[in-house]
């Protein structure tokens, strides 16, 4: 328990350093663009692949469960859309990105720590925590909602493609379903969640990488811890945000 509070305390101290005044804003803007490319753009592929399969699988499962003459077929499209918008595109994609982006950040910063690159920045008079972690946080908080939006579109389209290919659901009924009783706030809710998850993943992974010490084994351990703790934090924040925004 003592160790947990120690971790939390160190995390907030690090965040204090991360959000202190940057040395030079122009340099930070350049780094934000670089990080958007490295952490955001490079994740589009995996998000697209996961989303299309997720959308298709949800549609099959809904079709199986709603197989009744008393349930209109358009409800399958409706349920697939709601599942994608409310949970899959934000939470599941965030969990996948915690693995990809989180381990990337923790291992990159951890390696910089053990090869004294962070010490070199400190000696130059650079706030290394802010220089390394802040651009990553800003870029993911901006870019993850875009990935979530993309995931929603591709996931719903994946369901539609499945309808056409397998005939499990009438495509027209599916289209009717995805347009039925649409609540725009669900998209806002999902985008808020993805921004919060982006912050959680990047800051926690940055924390574990920044305080890695020793050798490559420790960097590997920091990377694993970053993914595990980020994933748990995502689930906790998912519950809190759902309670706050939907209830």
């Amino acid at each position: 328990m003592k160790k947990l509070f120690e971790y939390i305390g160190r995390y907030f101290i690090l965040m204090g350093k991360v959000f202190s005044k940057p040395e030079k804003r122009t340099i930070y803007w350049q780094r934000i663009l670089v990080e958007m490319q490295a952490l955001g753009l490079s994740s589009i592929g995996i998000v697209a692949i996961i989303s299309v399969f997720m959308g298709a699988v949800i549609t099959i499962q809904m079709a199986l469960n709603f197989e009744s003459p008393f349930i209109p077929q358009y409800l399958i499209g409706y349920a697939a859309r709601e599942s994608m918008l409310l949970e899959f595109s934000s939470t599941i994609v965030a969990l996948i990105l915690a693995g990809k982006v989180g381990s990337n950040i923790a291992s990159e910063i951890g390696t910089m720590r053990i090869t004294e690159q962070i010490d070199a920045l400190e000696i130059m008079g650079v706030n290394s925590a802010s220089y390394l972690i802040l651009p990553k946080i800003i870029s993911t908080v901006i870019f993850f909602p875009f990935l979530t939006t993309l995931s929603m579109g591709i996931g719903i389209a994946g369901g539609y493609v499945l309808c056409i290919l397998t005939g499990a659901v009438n495509p027209d009924a599916y289209i009717t379903g995805i347009r039925y009783d649409f609540k725009p706030f669900y998209i806002t809710y999902s985008l808020i969640k993805s921004s919060v998850f982006a912050f959680v993943i990047t800051s926690i992974s940055g924390f574990f990488g920044y305080y890695a010490n020793g050798n490559s084994l420790e960097v590997g351990r920091a990377s694993t811890q970053a993914v595990v703790i980020s994933s748990i934090a995502i689930l906790i924040f998912n519950l809190i945000l759902t309670q706050l925004l939907l209830m």
């Binding site: 390696t111 910089m112 004294e116 690159q117």
Partner: peptide, 17 residues
């Protein structure tokens, strides 16, 4: 401010990869 007047050569070079 003093650190800006300091240069340091680390054992492994510590160049940013």
């Amino acid at each position: 401010a003093i650190r800006k007047e300091v240069g340091m050569l680390f054992q492994g070079g510590a160049l940013l990869d």
